[in-house]
Simulated assay, not measured.
Amino acid sequence: MGMQSMVDFKWPGLARPDGERIIMNSGAFVAVDRYRDISYDPIYRPQALYHRALEGLRANNDAFLLQEVATNLPIYRDDTGPTDFHLHLPPGGFQLVLVTSGLFTFDYDGKVHYVGPGAVMLQSAIVHRQLFYTWAGLSTEENLKTPQSVVPDPLCMGYSGKFIEAFITDPTTFPNPTVVGSDHIKEDETPRTAWKHPLHNRPAGASFWFQDPLALDALFRAYPADAADGPVRAASPVHVRDLGIEAPSGNLVTGHIIATDPRGASLLPKNASAKADAEGLAKGEVVIYRIIRGTAAFADGSGKPLELATGDTVTAGKGAIRLTDVGEDTQILRLGLLKGIEDLRMWTPTQRDEIDALAGQIITRADLRSDRVAGKPVGYLYE
């Protein structure tokens, strides 16, 4: 795709979603997606198997989707390989990626990111591409059983690439246009291209966010004794990592990892002199807990226990559950969905189809960078 193919395209009525408002479930509901009951499906491409937390999605009025993506085929096959250049346009411009095993290379608006377990990326409405992923050569059954982690330990880095992904609403309900198809990518030019387009749909202040799992702001801190849910029982100290996504998301979603070390070991990179922010851990009109590894227990308003294990997800209304117990060598993703989500609208089916059909015509500006890892992208994230 050369520079000459860029056009100044105008289409009134497609700049913002014009559908129904998003309304989260305000009741004291509890929805559980058990790992034993789920299936993995190649929804979009053959090398990626998707496990979707559908019980939580439906119980929360289809407002927020959490899913696991598991790489299951080698990258060198004719029907796999790098993806095309595409973008997602969810309400609020919200897409979260948390890598949990293996290694990936992503291109976000012409800039390359090499990422492994624990890396966090928050982005949307930006042209991107998956360039590389690891595959361990295991059978599908064994591949899906491999351990996951938010800490870049060598064991998990050697497995097939997996990540946890989240969107506001279901990706089938918003535009996901392809900008440059795989067969039309010129490797000496297109991967260095940074694109700009007008379909942003993001709150003021929202921006691209990348957090390295070994960065200072990603260090685990002590679980606060004054947490709103009260103390948590565990055989070893409980720690918290703030994913830092609240401000970059435009104050739509908070994100934390609640974790413990394996018995007799110190796996989590820590800031031993600080404790986690209790206020941040209390946020969420709706909360989602995903057990990445280990075990955890919760209690509802009546004190009834709920026990979860690796791969399980619980979605609950505000105050409907509280975390009571965390097992050894456990890692839990906690997402708090904030009130601002209900200020958003969905794309209408007509808008979605029109934007998908536009594909590369939505690009209004393109710059080539001399170096893949330097320079300022022209995408919406930086302007």
Rank of each mutant, 00 (worst) to 15 (best):
P305K: 13
P17T: 13
T193P: 00
Y40E: 09
A278Q: 07
A227I: 07
S182V: 10
P377D: 00
P17D: 09
A259S: 13
D62K: 15
D329I: 05
E246G: 08
E20M: 11
T80W: 02
P46F: 11
A225D: 15
G319F: 09
G255R: 03
D109E: 09
L66H: 05
R129A: 07
I23E: 11
F64G: 03
G255T: 06
A15F: 11
H128E: 08
I38S: 06
P171G: 10
T190M: 04
L219H: 06
D84L: 13
N25K: 06
I75H: 02
E189R: 15
D33R: 06
M121Q: 01
A15D: 06
A276D: 04
G255M: 05
L216P: 00
V240Y: 03
E328D: 11
G311D: 05
D325S: 10
A119F: 01
A278S: 14
A119R: 01
A357F: 13
L54G: 02
T315Y: 10
E55T: 12
G301V: 09
I75V: 12
L73G: 01
A259L: 13
D226N: 14
M6V: 14
A316Q: 04
A234I: 12
L214K: 08
I332P: 00
D37E: 15
R21G: 10
K111T: 12
G19Q: 09
Q211S: 10
G327I: 03
F167C: 11
P171R: 09
P117S: 14
D78I: 12
R293L: 03
A296P: 00
M121C: 02
I38F: 04
G317M: 03
S160M: 10
Y76A: 12
L87R: 04
V326T: 07
S182F: 10
I288C: 04
L337A: 03
A274I: 12
E354C: 10
T364H: 13
T172R: 15
I126F: 04
D183L: 13
P74N: 13
L335N: 01
